[in-house]
Structures are given as C-alpha cells and as structure tokens.
Design a binder for these strands. Sequence first.
DNA 1: CCCAATCTAGACAGATCTGTCTATCCGCTT
DNA 2: AAGCGGATAGACAGATCTGTCTAGATTGGG
Lengths: 193, 193
Amino acid sequence: MTDAAATKPSSPKRDQLLDTAWRLFYRDGYHAVGIDTILAEAGVAKMTLYNHFASKDELIAAVLEKRHQEFVGALNAALEKSGKTGAKRLLAVFDWLEEWMTSPGFNGCTFIRAVAEYPRAEERPHVVAAEHKQWVIDYLAELARAASLKDPASLGRQLALVMEGAIVTAHTFGAKRVGRLARESAQRLIGAS
Amino acid sequence: MTDAAATKPSSPKRDQLLDTAWRLFYRDGYHAVGIDTILAEAGVAKMTLYNHFASKDELIAAVLEKRHQEFVGALNAALEKSGKTGAKRLLAVFDWLEEWMTSPGFNGCTFIRAVAEYPRAEERPHVVAAEHKQWVIDYLAELARAASLKDPASLGRQLALVMEGAIVTAHTFGAKRVGRLARESAQRLIGAS
DNA sequence: CCCAATCTAGACAGATCTGTCTATCCGCTT
DNA sequence: AAGCGGATAGACAGATCTGTCTAGATTGGG
C-alpha cells in the first residue's frame, strides 16, 4: 500500500497508459481518439491495455479518476501557497482558475467534456465526471463555511456555477479576460451573501 | 426569398436531414452518431446528403446554425410573452432557462457540447458554436443596457457565465434546483451592479 | 411529351473502430 | 535451472466510419 487512499494497484505500464490516454483525450476528445493511437503513442501492447482495463470506457473512467486526484492536489497546494484565509481563500480559488485557463495547452475541462460526450447519466465517464463536480461544489461550500459566510451551501453552489461558466467560456473563445470576470462575479456573490 | 435573413436555400429533404441529424446529435453526441444512422432515420439517400452538405462537419455546422435561429426566436418569444421590462426582463431570461432545463429531453447545450467535441478553435462546429455564444453575451448586455444598468457589457458577460454554468451543471446532475440557483445568482449580480 | 433537376438504392473503397486470441519471449524468484 | 507472471507483436473478427460512384426512378414545367 504505497499509494494513497482508493486508487487502483499501480504498475508502470498502467501509469503510462493513463498518462498517454489523458494527453490524447484532452487534446482531441474521447471519441476522436482510438485505442490504437494510444497504444502506439504509449508503446504498449493491446493485450496489456485490456488486462488493466475492461474496456475503453473503463480506461476513460480511470483517466478521469486520476485527473481528479491530481486536481484535488493542485488546488489544495495552490490555496496553501496563497496563504489566504477566510473569504480571500475563496477568491484565491478564482486566481488559481485564471492561471489555469491562461496556461498553454488549456483546452477546457476534461470532466465537462466527458459529460458532453457521454450525455447519459448512467454512462461511466459521466458518472465519474459528476462525482468530481460534486466534490468541487462541496469544496467551495466548505471554504465558504470556514469563512463564516452565511448560507455557505448555497454560496458554494453559486460560485461553482460561475466557475463552470468561466471554464466553458474560456474554452469557447480563448481565455483573455474571462478569469478576471469570473473573479469579479465571485467577489460580488460573496459580497451579497 | 421566402426565408429569413441569411439561411441557406431550403428544400424539404434538406430540412428533414437537419431535423433528424439534430435530434440524434443532441441525444447521443456528434461523433457517436454516424451518417448512415441519420440517413436511415430520415429516409434519405446518401448522395442527397452529400449534395446538400460538403461533409459531416458541414452538416453539423448547418444544424447548429439552424438551432441558433430557433434559439433566438424562442428566447425573443418568451421575453415578449413575459411582458417584463427593465431588469425584470433580464431575470425573465433565467425563468426561461429554468423552464428549458427542466423540460423533458433536456440534454445540455448543443453548442457547448459542440465545443467540447471539436475543441480546436478553427474547427467549423466550434466556430459556429462560438458565434452563438457571442450572440448570447451581446443579447444579455443589450438587455442590461436597456434596463439602464451601469456597465451593461460587463454585467452581460457575468450573467452569461452564470447561464453557461447552470446549463452544464444541470446536464451533469439533472436540473433539480439549478434553475432557481442561477436566477438567484443573476439577481445578486444585477443588484450589485 | 420530353427535358432537366432531384432523389433513389446500393455497391464500393479504404480506413478505422473495439475487442479477442495465440504464440512467443523476457526477467525474476526460488 | 526451472518455472511463472507479465508483456510482446500481430493476426483476426466483425462492425462501422466517411465519402464516392453509377445507373435507374421520379417529378414538375415548358
């Protein structure tokens, strides 16, 4: 048990598959990338993939789960590093968001895009993406609660709306001023709370 | 010239293709639906399709353009019918949004999903979707200006963020309370304006 | 009544898709 | 040295993908 919490047993080949798969899925889309492309790029045999994952959908689900772990880690690290507390900690989330959206290679949100390509609520990628989004909502609500803001649950949900909207808009048009705009919206929603 | 503004010459077969294509694309996704499925469902021969549209991407683009026209019509009609003016007219947009998100068959935003599946800014479906989203932003800004709110351009953009976020969230989890939440957020942003 | 435009079915090409199977081989442990 | 778990290449199945082409049917206007 060297790895954290609830991740699957990790092997080098498995990790390489997940990394390569994510890079391609994120760049081109889930349906647009075939298994064979991933295998060629990762330098891994087909049977190795199907030994680790039952199907392409399961591979996608595993990719999303791993990205979620990384997301949680990156967000926590950014907030720690910011040193902010209270309501400013909530705004630091939007600083971090802006940084991400303007970083090279930004291509929208891999989870939103999973929901878009797997529109039915029972499809595995959709389910995993929804779990991630629920986590984000709960996290924002928890920050609001820690900042002693009133009705933190509602505020968390509202800020999540702004976040999702910002990411989608940044992907549609390119980021430019979307980050600042989202931060301002967040500030106003917090202020009106 | 019986048809409005800047639409392509319309023929019965062409319309049927657009309708069927949209239904399937919206239900299952753009990559997930093959040309053959659309043809079978629409009862149209393959050459007819390729006589009207240069490629699948062009068909998708045409579908999105038509949906945009319908969107504009529906939104305008809803706002007229509401009879609201000023800032209340802005809120009526969010009433309309909630109605749509809770209506049967709601499956997210076809434009957002086009951006998700065609992530590169130069791909035709992405371009058409971006044009639609720009129209929405401008429309909200115009309503804000008509309501004599200050900095209507910024407010329009902020409200658009909330809208996008609401649609994505409703698709991810099912609508439930997302509509009301978005409306409240909008109200606060307008109030803080 | 015939011409021209439009649509038809269906074959076809050539690529690509997911997933399965086999037979081989490498490296580690005992 | 033997054996075993895991990885390998590559063939294979069977479906499906977009797009092209042909040759015949249908239809409405002059």
